[in-house]
Simulated scan of single mutants.
Amino acid sequence: ENGAGKTTLMNVLFGAYAPDAGEILVQGRPVTINNSADALAAGIGMVHQHFHLAPRLSVLENLLIGIPGKSGRIDRAGGLARLAEIGRQHGLTLDPDLPVS
């Protein structure tokens, strides 16, 4: 924990933050990473040191991070069903499309 920017770099590589400048190369080829799905498609995964929500993503998108769907796309219907199940189990009403906070 020295402020060198390791966490910021990883957040850029995983699509949580947009880069200010420069480029990202994966095996020598430039890639554009706008979100975690882009990162996963490029072969970049991330395990957070501490529990961390992705502030640019919705409640549902945070729930589905790292869960593969059909053809590498988010399984929105499956995610909504799982979110409703979690809500029932814990007595919560969650709007899946709100920004996480």
Results as ranks from 00 to 15, higher is better:
residue 4 A to N: 13
residue 4 A to I: 11
residue 6 K to H: 05
residue 6 K to R: 13
residue 7 T to V: 08
residue 9 L to F: 05
residue 12 V to S: 04
residue 12 V to D: 01
residue 13 L to A: 07
residue 15 G to P: 03
residue 17 Y to I: 01
residue 19 P to D: 05
residue 19 P to F: 02
residue 21 A to N: 09
residue 21 A to R: 14
residue 25 L to T: 01
residue 26 V to D: 00
residue 29 R to L: 00
residue 29 R to K: 09
residue 30 P to V: 00
residue 31 V to Q: 03
residue 32 T to Y: 00
residue 32 T to L: 00
residue 33 I to L: 03
residue 34 N to A: 10
residue 34 N to E: 08
residue 34 N to M: 01
residue 35 N to I: 02
residue 37 A to V: 11
residue 38 D to W: 06
residue 38 D to R: 06
residue 38 D to Y: 05
residue 38 D to K: 07
residue 38 D to T: 02
residue 38 D to P: 01
residue 39 A to Y: 05
residue 40 L to F: 08
residue 40 L to S: 10
residue 42 A to M: 05
residue 43 G to P: 00
residue 44 I to R: 05
residue 44 I to D: 04
residue 44 I to H: 06
residue 45 G to A: 15
residue 45 G to E: 11
residue 45 G to Y: 11
residue 45 G to D: 12
residue 46 M to W: 10
residue 46 M to A: 04
residue 46 M to T: 04
residue 47 V to L: 09
residue 49 Q to G: 04
residue 50 H to C: 02
residue 50 H to P: 00
residue 51 F to S: 10
residue 52 H to R: 15
residue 53 L to M: 09
residue 53 L to A: 08
residue 56 R to M: 07
residue 57 L to P: 05
residue 58 S to L: 06
residue 58 S to H: 09
residue 60 L to N: 09
residue 68 P to T: 14
residue 68 P to N: 14
residue 69 G to P: 13
residue 73 R to C: 11
residue 76 R to G: 07
residue 76 R to T: 15
residue 79 G to S: 07
residue 80 L to P: 06
residue 83 L to P: 12
residue 84 A to M: 06
residue 84 A to T: 12
residue 87 G to P: 07
residue 89 Q to G: 11
residue 89 Q to V: 00
residue 91 G to P: 03
residue 95 D to Q: 12
residue 97 D to C: 04
residue 98 L to K: 15
residue 100 V to S: 05
